[in-house]
Design a protein around this nucleic acid. Structure first.
Length: 280
DNA sequence: CCAAGGCCTGAATG
DNA sequence: ACATTCAGGCCTT
């Protein structure tokens, strides 16, 4: 029986934060960097390769977070409806490549491209009679040719992906450092990577760099703000400029608080379900 | 600082 | 069938 603190695995996986997950019966298998994770029907996460993982962010005080973001009836409704929805803490490199690919795309295509990338550049492992490909190491992608990367269906993003991997190899992007510093410092750094703008940076920070004050503003979230929060956050123009994005984010942090990223996840999940959008 | 246009790709729409 | 649109943005002009 699920209680207030248990995890709703299906809804958490199907909320746009991860892509390389496959359901087998009641079990979920997922690629997380150099690891494979298995989540059983009781929501127990296990590293199949016996590595340490904090994929479920077990140190989060969910009760405190929920209370903190429960600012109005819209978000309260989403929280109630998707009780157990959690933000994962995923492998940063995989997360970075995933969201570079996500720009101007959709979930099915993102998953498709990522699978091809693992098949082409990742190490194959066989466990429990099932075959998987780990996510490739940064070196592997950094040394690949742009044409090779393009065979994975990523189009114009191929040079971005190569360059991003290079920057990780050269430590121009240092995930250990980015985890330690605050939102603004991390964002400034990560936006230096080509193909990473405001929205993609916020996704990477929220889903892999422990920045719960990141609030990715994609077209869905903009729609949601216009629909339910027109009084709190006025949006005048069709497209959001850099400056507007920053101002909006400041207001959102003031309104929802330091865990606003969780509010985003609940609202995003609810609205896309309302429109019957497909997940993995 | 803002607005407009282009961009790989493939599933969905007409 | 075939053309066009659109999709969880970013970069350049």
């Amino acid at each position: 029986m699920k209680n207030k603190f248990s995890i709703d695995t299906d809804n958490s996986i199907n909320s746009g934060q991860v892509f390389l997950w496959e359901k087998d019966g009641t079990d979920w298998y997922g690629i997380n960097g150099q690891d494979i994770l298995k989540i059983n029907k009781n929501g127990i996460v296990k590293s199949v390769l016996n590595s340490k993982t904090n994929f479920f962010r077990k140190n989060d005080n969910i009760q405190e977070i929920i209370e903190s973001i429960s600012k109005d009836k819209t978000v309260k409704k989403a929280i109630k409806k998707y009780e157990g929805l959690k933000i994962f803490r995923q492998d940063p490199f995989q997360c970075m490549i995933s969201f570079i690919i996500s720009s101007n795309s959709n979930i099915q295509k993102i998953k498709n491209s990522l699978e091809k990338i693992t098949e082409k550049f990742g190490t194959q492992v066989k466990i429990q009679n099932k075959e998987f490909f780990l996510f490739p190491k940064p070196e592997k992608i950094a040394n690949a040719s742009i044409d090779e990367i393009k065979t994975c269906g990523v189009g114009y993003r191929a040079p971005f992906i190569k360059q991003a991997a290079k920057m990780v190899v050269l430590k121009k992007i240092d995930f250990k450092y980015l985890e330690k510093c605050n939102y603004h410092e991390a964002k400034k750094n990560i936006c230096l990577v080509p193909g990473i703008g405001n929205k993609v940076a916020d996704c990477i920070m929220l889903f892999s760099l422990n920045k719960l004050d990141a609030f990715p503003l994609d077209t869905w979230m903009i729609k949601i703000l216009e629909k339910y929060y027109s009084k709190e956050f006025k949006i005048e123009t069709k497209t959001i400029t850099q400056k507007q994005y920053e101002l909006l984010h400041e207001k959102i942090v003031i309104y929802f608080g330091p865990y606003c990223g969780y509010a985003q996840q609940f609202l995003f999940k609810m609205e896309r379900e309302n429109y019957d959008k497909k997940w993995l």
